[in-house]
């Protein structure tokens, strides 16, 4: 039998709105067991939130996303952690990753317009002491995000009845 924690995680990763009784039926365990495991996973910080995937491009709301490569000078004792913290504390920053390769931090952020994002980079990010350089890449089109293809075709092309 598949590890129940893993089964819960892989299932709700795709659909966090699934109700507990359905999850219990599908995984063949009791509802209280599901509830307890979920609580454990939440309190351990394994489950960090229940978000919604939105394709903002299909709305009339303007959003611009960018990936920013940041090169920094690591600091004695703190390495990259301190500078990462200074960056991720900005609410407009979506994610911050420490990266191997040609640069150090990969920052993704969201703003209302190109101007707003550029301003953030030039005013806030580049001016941080330890930041050596930045390179901003605006996202033009989102094909697939978090394992979800944005323009999926869901048509079932199979024969309706087959042996």
């Amino acid at each position: 039998m598949e590890n129940i924690r893993e089964a819960i995680l892989t299932t709700i990763e795709k659909n966090s709105r699934i109700d507990l009784s359905e999850l219990a039926i599908r995984l063949g365990v009791s509802e209280p067991d599901i509830a307890n495991t979920l609580e454990e996973l939440e309190s351990e910080g394994v489950i960090c939130g229940y978000h919604t995937m939105i394709d903002w491009d299909k709305t009339s709301i303007d959003k611009v996303s960018a990936l920013i490569e940041v090169r920094v000078t690591p600091q004695r004792e703190e390495g990259f952690d301190r500078i990462a913290e200074r960056i991720y504390n900005y609410p407009e920053v979506n994610s911050v990753y420490l990266i191997s390769g040609g640069y150090d931090l990969l920052v993704t952020l969201e703003g209302k317009s190109l101007k707003e994002v550029s301003q953030f980079v030039s005013d806030k990010l580049s001016t941080l002491d330890t930041v050596i350089s930045t390179a901003t890449h605006f996202i033009l089109k989102r094909y697939k995000d978090h394992g979800t293809i944005m323009d999926t075709r869901t048509e079932d092309v199979r024969e309706k009845v087959s042996p």
């Binding site: 199979r158 024969e159 309706k160 009845v161 087959s162 042996p163």
Partner: peptide
């Protein structure tokens, strides 16, 4: 299969496939 095909109704959903 023929009955379903003849109905040719987009509302029809199927639990009839073997693939």
């Amino acid at each position: 299969f023929d009955i379903v095909a003849e109905m040719n109704d987009p509302e029809v959903i199927s639990l009839g496939v073997g693939e």
